[in-house]
Nucleic acid binder design. Structure first.
Lengths: 224, 224
DNA sequence: TTCAAAACTTTAGGTAAACTTTAAGTAAAA
DNA sequence: TTTTACTTAAAGTTTACCTAAAGTTTTGAA
């Protein structure tokens, strides 16, 4: 899950970012409205968290402009004002939820989870394919043989694959979604994590496997 | 995917070109606006990256002239100015996106991918002719007999043929589109890949075949 | 009609790049 | 401290790509 966070107070931004990362989200943080708009356009976020009061462009305008460009990601507003008009304007502009500062991190997490769930419609906490199950809240990979906890990157990769069974996901797409497009890391890390996942799937006698499509990426498919 | 890159600073152009090529794009690089216009007209690019400030003709005029000629390829502007007017003018002229220098290569790649994705969402993902189907995302060639994954060059050739059934495609056109104008390779490689494709089509009992038109090129046609 | 050159077909093999895996090092968390 | 997550490096494996060379077919000039 990739989240865009736009919040001009850097300390607050860092705090939120740390919490989100700790919960296995990939986070891009920006500190003004213009960057928020640019990032939102350039990438395919699962969720966008926007402060309303920001330099260069306010959150509501960012949202309006993104929606005008066809960006449909769910948006949550952070607002210092408890002003009702502001909320109405935000929701009218196409926001899915809002949160008034100050707020508890737990509430933010819950709302983000809810929004992402709404987006994926079916709201499965467990992803399933073949004889394996991936639990999104404990990060556990299970079969009848047993279960294993996945590390954050492992989890994110398998989540992407299980969300799109039989669909090719390019190595670059993994990098973008999980490491960020400005990452210093080599493409190599993706290969390493694929290797880790395959090893764990084998350990659990999974009947799915990750197929490499040379020069393109990977697909998750059922064993024949 | 074939990209036209117009950027007058040669070092910058080379750097961008190298990155794009490494990411499986075919790149034509030009160093002034006039060439950009001519190349853009002469070939069918999937995406055009234009510097705004260029000798002979500026990027915005290049875009306007191309659009006037009916060229619909998505266009991304590179601009040194963060000047808002410039951006507005660019977007008004029909650009799909812009990027302010300096920028991260990763961001450029992400935006190009996004633009091409938007375009390819319109195009059907499966190509079909006779009893065979070519899946554009997994590169798989299927019939009732089974399926085979095509290598990158094989795929690109068959894609060109299936996009233009019963139309003659010259050997030179294959070379240009797939290997690039300045390729060192012999014309021979086209013949070799045609041979590979025919072998695979036969293996799958395809009812289409690639007919050679001596001295001209190849056509894809249904077996009688 | 013949036959040699040109145009294409096909196969085989070397090379480089893409991918896999393991091992080892670093930094952060428990 | 110990453990865990993450990354890099490097050695091993596989495969796409291209070249070269040996067929095969077609063409057209003699």
């Amino acid at each position: 899950m990739k989240i865009l966070l736009a919040e001009d107070e850097k300390e607050m931004a860092n705090a939120i970012s740390a919490v989100l990362k700790h919960n296995h989200y990939y986070v891009d943080a920006v500190y003004n409205g213009e960057d928020a708009y640019n990032y939102g356009l350039a990438d395919d976020y699962d969720c966008i968290v926007l402060d309303i009061m920001m330099p260069k462009m306010n959150g509501i305008d960012v949202l309006k402009n993104l929606r005008a460009k066809g960006i449909a990601a769910p948006v949550l507003f952070l607002t210092a004002k408890s002003d009702v008009d502001d909320r109405i304007e935000g929701l009218d502009a196409g926001a899915d939820d809002y949160l008034t500062k100050p707020f508890a991190m737990g509430e933010l997490l819950a709302r983000i989870r809810a929004m992402c769930r709404r987006k994926s419609e079916i709201a499965p906490n467990d992803l399933q394919m073949g004889n394996v199950t991936l639990n999104r809240s404990t990060f556990e990979l299970c079969t009848k043989k047993g279960s294993l906890r996945l590390a954050s990157k492992e989890f994110q990769m398998l989540e992407m694959l299980m969300n799109n069974p039989n669909v090719l996901i390019s190595t670059e797409r993994f990098m973008e979604k999980i490491w960020g497009y400005d990452s210093e890391s080599e493409i190599n890390v993706v290969w390493v994590y694929i290797s880790y996942l395959r090893k764990k799937l084998t350990q659990l006698d999974a009947d799915i496997n990750i197929k490499a499509v040379r020069g393109a990426g990977y697909t998750l498919e059922k064993k024949t």
